[in-house]
Design a protein around this nucleic acid. Structure first.
Lengths: 217, 217
DNA sequence: AGTCAAGCTTTCGTATACAAGAACTGAGTT
DNA sequence: AACTCAGTTCTTGTATACGAAAGCTTGACT
């Protein structure tokens, strides 16, 4: 599937940026990175194009490329869009979901509950992701699902931290159950509303975390 | 603003593709296009990267780049997402819109009405676009507005044709008025629903047109 | 001593050259 | 006559070389 060197490098860089190896604002040196990956500047530049298109880096005219500083405002905006997008997925899924998928959602929720009861936030996070991706798929709209997946991936690093907030897992869990209920009943509007708040809460929690960090400094 | 040659070429190519100079499935010859634009292959390849990221072309591993064949299914999916996205814009705008923006929407609608009464579908189309972009902006979420704008642009060529359908302009017009009403009243859910169907109708009309074309062959 | 300008260095943007892979064509064989 | 295999050619992917622009440093002038 992966086409060429530049694709591979783009993936690697994306991972490294999202994982925080390169902090926001850092300048990415073409020459040095090319050396590091053992290639010339050409494939590296192609990788940069892709990252720029994905909004991860910023290319300044004759200055170089920099890891994009995603401000708190933009991040909150992205969370809002995520909430709306998931609501859309839910709305459509409520009209189109299959019994098999409903069973899968139940199973994912069971695993979520198990993780919660064991207090394993890592595996909770993993199963939570399965749950959400299932809904994306069940929207029956591959374009929408892809869009949702992309945004989800983008917000991943910021989503994760808030599961450690006390009581969040339990609350998230009950919301999941309600969502499945709405899906099973085919209540599109209700399902959309539930998903919207379920995700919007993450944005708010994130906001609180940010405010807390800022206050602590 | 525009950075370099490759940016310019990307824009030109995008326009040419959307306008139909290159029909879907056509292979884009690097060498020939480079010659045509009076540049080397390098900036052209960079332009290709951008177009690929925008989903307009497809790069096949050692085969070349091809104008993407957007199937009817995918197109309908995109219309559906457009409907959902505009609904989201409307929902948020209903809570955040300013009086000034409401006045602008009224003005745009007046111009729409004038165009409709004059039977000028071109200028109706233009004012219609203004109307929708205003709502994008008034969502108060720049990320969402950008997303909506991108999708709108992508669907432009397919949106346009259906205004020629008999009675569509008049219906569109009344829907606009209802939408502004909901925005003014701050009724988020109603505004979202109105926008959703307003845009979804376009997808359906498009579907009919497609079916008609297919039947005519 | 401070400021401005000019040159120098660095790095980006573009061109070109080279290598590797895929398709096509031709001939030979079954 | 059809199929296969090998050679050739065309095109893509990558490397490298060159030119231009931006920033920094240094020196001279006020």
């Amino acid at each position: 599937m992966s086409r060429s060197r530049s694709d591979l490098i783009a993936e690697t860089l994306e991972d490294e940026i999202l994982r925080g190896r390169f902090s926001p604002g850092t300048r990415l040196d073409e020459t040095r990175l090319a050396e590091e990956h053992g290639v010339s500047r050409t494939p590296l530049r192609e990788a940069f194009q892709k990252l720029a298109a994905a909004g991860l880096i910023e290319q300044q005219p004759r200055r170089g490329v920099f890891v994009r500083e995603v401000g708190a405002v933009e991040l909150l905006e992205m969370f809002e869009v995520m909430a709306e997008t998931e609501a859309s997925c839910g709305r459509l899924a409520a009209q189109r979901i299959t019994d098999a998928a409903l069973a899968e959602l139940d199973a994912a929720n069971d695993r979520c509950r198990a993780a919660m009861e064991a207090g394993e936030s890592d595996s909770y996070y993993r199963e939570n992701e399965v749950f959400h991706h299932l809904i994306y798929e069940q929207s029956g709209n591959r374009f929408l699902a892809a869009e949702a997946g992309r945004l989800h991936r983008r917000l991943k690093p910021f989503r994760r931290m808030q599961l450690h907030l006390r009581g969040r897992m339990a609350q998230s869990m009950t919301e999941h159950l309600e969502i499945v209920e709405a899906l099973r009943a085919g209540e599109a509007d209700r399902c959309a509303a539930l998903l919207r708040t379920h995700v919007a809460v993450q944005g708010e929690k994130f906001h609180h975390l940010m405010a807390g960090l800022r206050a602590a400094q």
